[in-house]
Design a protein around this nucleic acid. Structure first.
Lengths: 343, 343
DNA sequence: TTGAAAGCGCTAACAG
DNA sequence: CTGTTAGCGCTTTCAA
């Protein structure tokens, strides 16, 4: 049986209450007693029991607030599933999760929402936002109020956030390049479809991709790089136009949303077999297109894990002594082809 | 706050002890009272609180016994990491894990070990063994003694095991075929290296592979299928010989261990660029060979998850009412190439 | 500055 | 057949 707070109390000749006070760095303990208790705890290798702690914590249940730019973006469905899964698993420990969904990555909307969440006195926040100064400030203010924040899916460095949980976008791009150069024997003439030139993750995916192609020594030429603005109709229109004007294009690299639109253009031009499409994530339409072999492969980022781990991390942080910093959690780059797309 | 046993007791006008008895189907409760309590529990949507349960359970700690044919097989290192990870996470709930490692899949050794584990009165067992009648009987005897069993990595159906946690071998083979047909433009002349013709999983990987190639319409010819007996030296020798005799071979499909040996032969014959090697799992030597591009890709089966989930499943089964059967947990087929092999 | 006690939800042992 | 009680480990409150 592990060592308990009682053991420490007995050993130190004090009461359990005093030990608890010391262990939580609360005031009102004679310094010499505190030192002695700490020494004994250390020596005995004390580690607080989760079950006992959780049970006592039930009296002060915790609620985590989330901000997700998920409206109209099916990618987040899986991430939300992960959040809910963690909530379910931790509900017996008094945890609940509130999700605030917004549409788009508009800075003003995000700042307003973060401030609203701050006022609601959540135990902690879990957010997916944009790396701009205004948002950073809103996060700093939240943390200053004593509400810890984690970033999920998109990092906002230097904001004071506890940690980042999400993919390594650069690495995803590089993996795309690796696989493409395995399936592509001729020179690659590329159409790159990004979501927005202002989103860091999208840029990283392009950078990793191009550097990866060079590393693999696949000859290539970027014919054009365009923004889809995460909109299928727009993606369809520009893909159609560019493919028509540049018949030499044999590969489309879709960095963000707009996958279905781009593929629709490929199909409309009867280029399913001459143009390879490489994408990210596996929202339902993407899955279908992989199964139909319109998309050669798609790279996923474990969205369920992202949601799940974010909540688990916050929980363990709140349950811990709140002084141990959390480490980042980078999700894997998962290659999906027709055969394993339904995994 | 969720509904507790106390709420039910009050509502039913009985004591907490009685409610507990009913909920655990223990004897000594007047049938009509039992019915009433059950009805109220149902109506209130009662679900026992994990933390409370765990705390009480500390008085009767549980120990799970494991059997793994892991000696000399680095694949199991990751699986063991998963077991230990779960043990660590659940240690506060009184869980500990004993691992019994054996060498090889020898039936007699396995039966003897299972019987030994049975006598040690573990709370439950978690085993990787062979699907043969003798082992099946040993498992049945263990279960008859009241010790539940789960199968990890390799299923033993109809043995009464609670559930299977591991890969879908057939599906792994099919995925290998899918990817191979994407990177291979000419007819595939195959050397298939299996571990043993008597291991079901290995056969499934071959079956899935061949059927997958047909589905993808990649022309192919199996030049030879040989047993490596999971031994690198043996794999080296036969690969060397077969490659020399059949220079048309352009693809080696390694279903089990012996990867390093097979690759050594490819290197010895300077065939790194003319022969594609496709393997399973990512033990250290395999990782290295993927990085060196000797192996085109390797298919992994989430070994850490296998160990982790096995223990978690046993725990939740023992903590639950022990009447809800466990569902199988099929791990994903993870494609790894040079770029994501270190994920 | 400290100790004692109550209680989180559940289980088990003991009385009746 | 059923109620009472004690206790798992920890936190918090009240009292001293």
């Amino acid at each position: 049986m592990a060592v308990t707070i009682k053991d420490i109390a007995r050993e130190a000749g004090v009461s359990r209450g005093t030990v608890d006070r010391v262990l939580h760095n609360r005031t009102g303990v004679k310094p010499e007693v505190a030192i002695k208790v700490r020494e004994i705890a250390e020596r005995l290798g004390f580690f607080p029991n989760k079950a006992g702690k959780a049970l006592a914590a039930l009296k002060q249940p915790m609620t985590f607030g989330c901000l997700l730019p998920s409206i109209g973006n099916p990618f987040f469905d899986d991430l939300i599933d992960g959040l809910r899964m963690a909530e379910r698993e931790l509900s017996d420990f008094g945890v609940s999760v509130d999700i605030m969904q917004v549409k788009s990555f508009d800075t003003e909307v995000h700042v307003r929402t973060i401030n609203a969440l701050k006022e609601k006195n959540y135990t902690a926040l879990c957010i997916t936002s944009v790396d701009v100064p205004e948002v950073k400030q809103a996060i700093e203010a939240t943390i200053a109020k004593g509400i810890p924040v984690v970033c999920v899916n998109t990092d906002i460095p230097d904001s004071g956030r506890l940690c980042y949980i999400g993919p390594d976008y650069y690495h995803g791009g590089k993996t795309a390049a690796g696989l493409l150069s395995m399936i592509c024997k001729e020179k690659a003439s590329l159409l790159i479809l990004t979501g927005s030139f202002h989103i860091h993750g999208h840029n990283e995916r392009i950078k990793g991709f191009l550097e990866g192609l060079e590393e693999r020594k696949l000859p290539f030429e970027v014919i054009q790089t365009q923004e889809s603005l995460d909109d299928n109709e727009h993606a369809y229109a520009i893909t159609l136009e560019i493919l028509e004007k540049n018949p030499q294009i044999n590969c489309i690299y879709v960095v963000a949303a707009g996958v279905e639109g781009a593929c629709r253009a490929v199909i409309a031009l009867n280029k399913e077999s001459s143009v390879k499409v490489v994408t990210f994530d596996d929202i339902p339409t993407t899955k279908m297109l992989v199964k139909q072999k319109i998309i050669s492969f798609t790279l996923c980022q474990e969205p369920i894990q992202q949601g799940y781990r974010a909540i688990q991390k916050l929980f363990s942080y709140m349950m811990g002594n709140q002084r141990t910093p959390l480490s980042d959690s980078i999700t894997n780059t998962i290659i999906k082809i027709r055969e394993n797309i339904e995994d």
